[in-house]
């Protein structure tokens, strides 16, 4: 079940929330929308789910236009809106049954699919409670359960882990990962680890525009800057100039400096050329000088750095 978004634009009054964005999502992909708050992630999702209508451009789900075939598109989609709205005065089973009826699950399958969701989402202990009495983690599971009650081919989850504690986050991520295997899944988040942990592909959205699109790894490759290596040496009253000269002479190292001297430990920072691993050369050089190396650590540009780079100028 593919999603094709072409030249999508949405205005709220005078302000453009989404500006002329286009992308394709293929069947079976887990795609993360990453962006700061107010970047246009939710607005884009609301247009995919037919809640909002674009000012221009269009969205097609499996070739069906979201406006012309609104009802058919909705049948294919399971949606967890932002803030996970629920009917707090209903109990879990009644609510899931209601959701199943609204999703046109055939009458004879309703009990089965409700039970199935209770099992998958681990709601067995709370199934007879009112939703208003549940903890946030359980509410989130109820929200996921209602989104998947009709076994949709596309799942759209708007910030599925916001407001959860770390244990619950890991649990929900595991659930998403499990479900994502058979489905096309789009989730939004402003948490970077989430994308790294769950998604095959990332769309970084800022100010209503897509500023980066690719797998987490390919984005790291693309935006990789200089490699920085931290070297820690034992200070045996060695000749520092000699060391610096030796380190600087290593191939691919452009610059080296002493960061600090800490008792009998010297910290050196060396920056290497883009995309080159210089650790081995450094190690051999240090050993050949008969010095003792205490630490060697290479830092690469993380997704976090990329995210900051792309979204800081607001």
């Amino acid at each position: 079940m593919s999603i094709r978004v072409s030249n999508l634009t949405k205005y709220y009054g005078q302000q453009a929330a989404v500006k002329d964005i286009s992308f394709n999502i293929n069947t079976g992909e887990i795609v993360g929308f990453l962006g700061p708050n107010g970047a246009g992630k939710s607005t884009t999702m609301k247009m995919i789910t037919t809640y909002l209508t674009p000012n221009s451009g269009k969205v097609e789900v499996n070739g069906m236009d979201t406006e012309e075939n609104s009802i058919e598109v909705r049948k294919k989609i399971g949606y967890l809106p932002e803030q996970n709205p629920l009917y707090l005065d209903m109990n879990v089973l009644d609510y899931l049954e209601y959701a199943a009826q609204l999703e046109s699950v055939p009458k004879e399958n309703i009990n089965k699919s409700v039970k199935n969701m209770v099992d998958i989402c681990g709601l067995g202990d709370v199934q007879h409670k009112d939703i208003g009495e549940l903890s946030k983690g359980f509410k989130q599971r109820v929200g996921l359960a209602q989104a998947m009650i009709h076994d949709p081919e596309v799942l759209i989850l708007d910030e599925p882990t916001s407001g959860l504690d770390p244990n619950q986050i890991i649990e929900i991520r595991r659930l998403i990962k499990k479900l994502g295997k058979q489905k096309t899944l789009v989730l939004s988040t402003h948490i970077l680890q989430e994308v790294e942990a769950t998604c095959d592909r990332v769309l970084i959205i800022n100010n209503g525009e897509i500023v980066a699109d690719g797998t987490p790894d390919s984005l790291q490759d693309k935006f990789r800057g200089q490699v920085q290596v931290n070297i820690v040496l034992k200070n045996d009253s060695v000749d520092k100039e000699l060391i610096m000269k030796a380190v600087s002479s290593i191939k691919n190292i452009e610059k080296a400096r002493i960061l600090k001297e800490d008792g009998n430990v010297i910290h050196i920072i060396a920056s290497g050329a883009k995309g080159e691993d210089v650790r081995e050369d450094i190690f051999r050089k240090i050993v050949s000088l008969n010095l003792i190396m205490l630490g060697l650590h290479q830092e690469e540009t993380s997704l976090e750095d990329i995210f900051r780079q792309l979204t800081k100028n607001k």
Partner: peptide, 14 residues
């Protein structure tokens, strides 16, 4: 107010 309208209006019903 509770946002459930968004759920309701994205279900396959008119």
């Amino acid at each position: 107010k509770s946002g459930t309208i968004e759920l309701l209006l994205t279900k396959p019903i008119t």
